[in-house]
């Protein structure tokens, strides 16, 4: 049996397969479909300081081999999260990573501070980069100095592993990733969605209420892989690959390019057990290839 464990800072995951924030709810939505404890971990939907209603409909639109979304981070707020969502999550044995967002670096730190007393949170992921929030989540990760400041502010209030999630909608993701690593992030995750747009030619209206939204799904996978590869070469902390990963083969591309772990997002909407299938596929691949552990594969790209 191959040892699929990976280290993300002080956190040890049983395997490198996580679910992506905003695509897996708070876990319970998927509990009917498979044993969630088979996953390396779950990354929750974003939690903010105050409750947010989210964006008006239409919020989603199907595109070639992908989809656009503009959900707007609806969530019950951190205090209700603790009461309503945490009890189920805390019943799981898999690692639970809580994704957080704020309108300012102070607010990021406040959400994390509010979660510090909750026992069992495996790590935090900082959502700098949701393109669909008016106050401009995007701005946090499009400027290296601001991005680093947010990471530093959160770093100051927690010793738990800290993952900074990066947007691809920037000139140099490598530079921003580097700044966050220097500011104390334990890992980077990339990519969030790509800004995209679609128009209904009959009504001449945009397909999303917010006009533009975030593109995800298989369509973005090659873009994501290139960004992850860029980050891997720029930082020495683990990089978690996200973007259109639906199968073990897809995940292997990221791991060979140097990713420590992967997140499964949009694929889980269509095949609820997609992340489990990736775990099983990785196990099969490693057995067939006679690999003792994932380190033998990670970053093994032949140039």
């Amino acid at each position: 049996m191959t040892d699929l464990r990976v280290h993300i800072g002080s956190l040890v995951l049983d395997n490198p397969v996580l679910t992506a924030s905003g695509t897996f709810g708070y876990g319970s939505e998927f509990a009917d479909f498979f044993d969630l404890d088979r996953l390396g971990g779950i990354v929750t939907k974003t939690v903010t300081l105050e409750p947010r209603p989210g964006n008006p409909p239409p919020r989603i639109c199907e595109t070639p081999a992908g989809m656009l979304n503009s959900i707007g981070l609806p969530n019950v707020g951190v205090e209700q999260f603790k009461l309503e969502k945490w009890p189920f999550l805390s019943s799981l044995h898999t690692a639970v990573i809580v994704n957080v967002a704020g309108r300012s670096s102070q607010e990021f730190a406040d959400v994390v501070a509010a979660l510090e007393a909750v026992k069992g949170i495996a790590a935090y992921e900082l959502n700098y980069s949701c393109p669909n929030v008016k106050e401009g989540g995007l701005s946090f990760s499009s400027d290296a100095r601001v991005a680093a400041e947010v990471t530093a502010r959160v770093r100051a209030v927690t010793r738990r592993p800290l993952i900074t999630k990066l947007t691809p909608n920037v000139t140099s993701i490598g530079e921003i990733g580097r700044a966050c690593a220097d500011a104390g992030a334990d890992a980077l995750s990339a990519i969030n969605t790509l800004v995209g747009m679609a128009v209904d030619i009959r009504t001449r209206k945009p397909r999303l209420s917010t006009v533009t939204g975030g593109l995800s799904g298989p369509a973005i996978r090659p873009v994501a892989l290139a960004r992850v590869y860029e980050l891997v070469r720029r930082v020495s902390i683990p990089v978690i690959g996200i973007g259109g990963i639906a199968t073990a083969e897809d995940a292997l591309e990221f791991i060979i390019a140097g990713a420590a772990a992967v997140q499964i997002g949009t694929a889980g909407f269509v095949h609820p057990d997609a992340a489990l299938r990736v775990v099983e596929g990785l196990e099969d691949f490693c057995r067939r290839e006679g690999l003792a552990n994932l380190a033998q594969l990670r970053g093994s790209l032949q140039l």
Binding site: G25, E29, D32, K45, R59, I60, I71, P74, V270
Partner: peptide, 17 residues
Amino acid sequence: ENRMACGFGACVGCAVE
């Protein structure tokens, strides 16, 4: 009958006002 990416509460795309 709203558009939905998943149908089981995960995508949060099929919002009704």
